[in-house]
Design a protein around this nucleic acid. Structure first.
Lengths: 208, 208
DNA sequence: CGCCCTCTTGAACCAGTTCAAGCGCAGTGG
DNA sequence: CCACTGCGCTTGAACTGGTTCAAGAGGGCG
């Protein structure tokens, strides 16, 4: 573990590139990291966002190949950088470590499955609403969301354009999502939950 | 391993339900299996399709909780059913087995990431095209796709409605995808690849 | 034959994109 | 001190991709 080190990244700084050789894996100590791919078309697909306590690039490190995605700092952040061979060394010597990694992989799979579920079945507004619910924390006697990063990035993560995100948030004002000092306040969480579970036909009914 | 057994399922038959207690995991010997969730809205999200040689529900089996998704036979299929505690027993006694499971998990993560990439950046037609390329096999001096299951299911997997899939395939006829005995023939794979990598603005140019 | 099931097609409609303009604000330089 | 610029975000209007609803074609089967 003494071979690992803490590194600081500025907002927007690259951590590693897609298809670069994998030399390390990372644990987020602070801030946000974006995992993404640039397609042949030039579009960027944001695969995952990671924050404090979460790990990434473990799979790439263990397989000793290239990174399966790129990683950028989405905000200023601190990362624990673990060299790939150090990781493999731990895995070979500590039998319990494989189980820890397995557990971690399973959580990733769950998170990705949730995303796919949302992309296939929910509208943009619903995905935004779900995103807000997920990031909402109690504050005083209301729920409060501190937007974790810029809206351009949030939109990319949700699979919509920034303009659509802007319009989605405008619509959510009717359901008690109001701009507040440094974020958004959710005055009626139940209404938000209800909106998230609406199916297509019901959405139109509700809009009228 | 003598505690495992081979089971046969008919097309459409349920294998296990979402949130039912996890008692076994499976390896597909033959046929296709659909992993899905039913949302509160009533919509169905198809998360993954698995075929010969692929495994599923391992994560659920090891975590000893409930299934994180439902599973149905998409076609008639043969599955190797492994009881959860047998799996845990192997994991505890065979140190190399954890590595195998890890590798398997990483492949799942890659597959899910690819899906997210497609859903966030590609149009419906492009996803259909990519699906066909992925399933195309050489046959004579052409590429040929045997459609693996009904189009309703294929559409759900691709995150579009059956009608849209039908129209997408109609559009792809212009790019050399022609109906043939028992499937589709791809006369110009390069054209298909090109279409897959087109970005929004270029798509409209090409359409004219 | 009639029935069901899968798939296709058409027309109206809606969600999200695109392009363009405009606002508020921080940083810069005259 | 204030114009100027760049950036993040919002808003409007036109447009497109995909959905919805409804109708119909074709095949398999009792």
């Amino acid at each position: 573990m003494q071979r690992s080190r803490i590194r600081r990244f500025d907002r927007g700084e690259g951590i590693f590139l897609h298809q670069s050789p994998s030399r390390s894996c990372y644990v987020v100590m602070n801030g946000w990291v974006k995992l993404y791919r640039i397609l042949a078309s030039g579009d960027e697909a944001v695969l995952r966002m990671h924050t404090r306590g979460e790990a990434f690039a473990f799979a790439d490190a263990l397989r000793q190949g290239q990174h399966h995605y790129g990683a950028d700092a989405a905000s200023e952040c601190l990362l624990l950088e673990i060299p790939s061979d150090a990781l493999r060394h731990i895995l070979a010597n500590d039998p319990g470590f494989a189980t820890v990694l397995l557990g971690h992989s399973f959580e990733q799979i769950d998170a990705l499955s949730d995303q796919i579920e949302a992309l296939k079945c929910r509208s943009g507004v619903q995905r935004v609403a779900a995103f807000l619910r997920q990031h909402a924390r109690p504050r005083g006697n209301h729920m409060f969301v501190t937007l974790p990063y810029e809206k351009v990035l949030m939109a990319a993560y949700l699979g919509i354009k920034p303009e659509s995100l802007s319009r989605a948030l405008a619509k959510l004002r009717d359901v008690g999502v109001v701009a507040a000092e440094g974020g958004l306040e959710i005055t009626d969480p139940d209404a938000l939950d209800e909106l998230i579970d609406l199916r297509g036909a019901e959405r139109r009914m509700a809009a009228s």
